[in-house]
Design a protein around this nucleic acid. Structure first.
Lengths: 105, 105
DNA sequence: AAACACACTTTCCTTTAGGAAACTACTATA
DNA sequence: TATAGTAGTTTCCTAAAGGAAAGTGTGTTT
């Protein structure tokens, strides 16, 4: 079985410093632009806006405009984003092990 | 529990177009520079050399010099690289699902 | 009217990634 | 001696990523 190709293709969608952090942040309940931004240390509004558009195109998050006064904009997970959970968990658990590995030395 | 931070840290090590493809290629038995390169369509020797050094520093692969004539250089997985298997599988399976998702439309 | 909140956008700039092509150092083989 | 293979390196270039800082448009509050 070829593993290289599907993994490379998956990376095309997921790769980047901010995509998964944003998905996670939205996943844990942050809905508004400023809340998401505050939950991710170091991200700039420019990066936020760009990545949010990207993720919307990939159908991983949804941008919802509510026409109240004032207009509310919220970001939500799509059901499709749920499929990323195994990847997120794998990365998270790996990093925790990785940190232990570094402390050993 | 904070998920954003460990995932971002994990991405620092794993992120990039070529790192996981190289790890996978070495994992399935490619040992020599030219074999690894041939197994990954599109990679240039320059990218190879850079990423191999990077991965070596992160202790995910090992560069072994055998002083025969001619000198042989082989790349191997470290035991530590085994810890990446869940991530690789998660990405691989996700991409297969993702492809089905795209075909639906 | 002034100030603030929100969700961005714009400008300017530096860094990093990435690729094409040629080249190098060494050894082996014909 | 000429050619080929291995494992890279070097040069030159373009494109994409990323950040800092300021600005925009809308509406709300005081």
């Amino acid at each position: 079985m070829d593993t290289v190709k599907p993994v490379r293709d998956a990376l095309d969608v997921i790769n980047g410093k901010w995509k998964l952090p944003i998905i996670i942040s939205v996943g844990v309940g942050n809905e508004r632009f400023s809340d998401i931004q505050e939950s991710i240390p170091g991200i700039t509004p420019k990066a936020m806006a760009k990545e949010l558009k990207d993720l919307e195109q990939h159908k991983l998050i949804q941008r919802i405009v509510t026409n109240d006064y004032p207009v509310k904009i919220t970001y939500r997970w799509t059901p499709y984003a749920n499929t990323l959970i195994p990847i997120i968990n794998a990365l998270k658990e790996w990093e925790i092990k990785h940190r232990q590995e570094v402390f050993k030395k």
